[in-house]
């Protein structure tokens, strides 16, 4: 945990998951469609990947929420020159990024539900 508190990398885990999910979904459906497998495979596979990605992002969001520690002191500005302020800032930004990534992953999945075939 202490590691997470002073690491920039942890802040961007959620969007990195988004990026990997995006690539995986795009490549997977391209391959399934190109090799003329049934469209149901593409749908099923994409949904499974989305479930995994969303679960991971949610988990990151929980960790970030704890790191932010908002309910403890209600601080959302984090402008003090202290280790606490820095920790909470990284948590706060990480949480917001996790939320945006969650939404973005959902958006990327929607077409699979609405489009009926590869075309």
């Amino acid at each position: 945990m202490a590691q997470r508190h002073r690491s920039l990398w942890h802040m961007i885990i959620a969007p990195v998951i988004w990026a990997l999910h995006f690539l995986a979904v795009y490549c997977f459906s391209a391959i399934v469609c190109a090799k003329a497998a049934p469209f149901g495979w593409a749908q099923g596979g994409v949904l499974a990947m989305t479930a995994v990605a969303l679960a991971l992002i949610f988990w990151q969001a929980v960790l970030a929420w704890r790191q932010w520690d908002f309910l403890d002191d209600g601080d959302h500005v984090h402008e003090r020159p202290t280790a606490t302020s820095r920790r909470e800032f990284l948590g706060h930004a990480g949480l917001l990024l996790a939320i945006v990534s969650f939404i973005a992953v959902t958006f990327v999945t929607l077409p699979v539900l609405f489009v009926g075939d590869c075309r």
Partner: peptide, 27 residues
């Protein structure tokens, strides 16, 4: 940071009329 990441998801946006499969266009 969010824009930095998400902007990479936009690439085929410019190729709407080139006849990519509808599914990948949707993404």
């Amino acid at each position: 940071v969010g824009t930095g990441f998400l902007s990479f998801g936009l690439w085929v946006h410019h190729m709407f009329t080139t006849g990519l499969p509808a599914l990948s266009l949707g993404f």
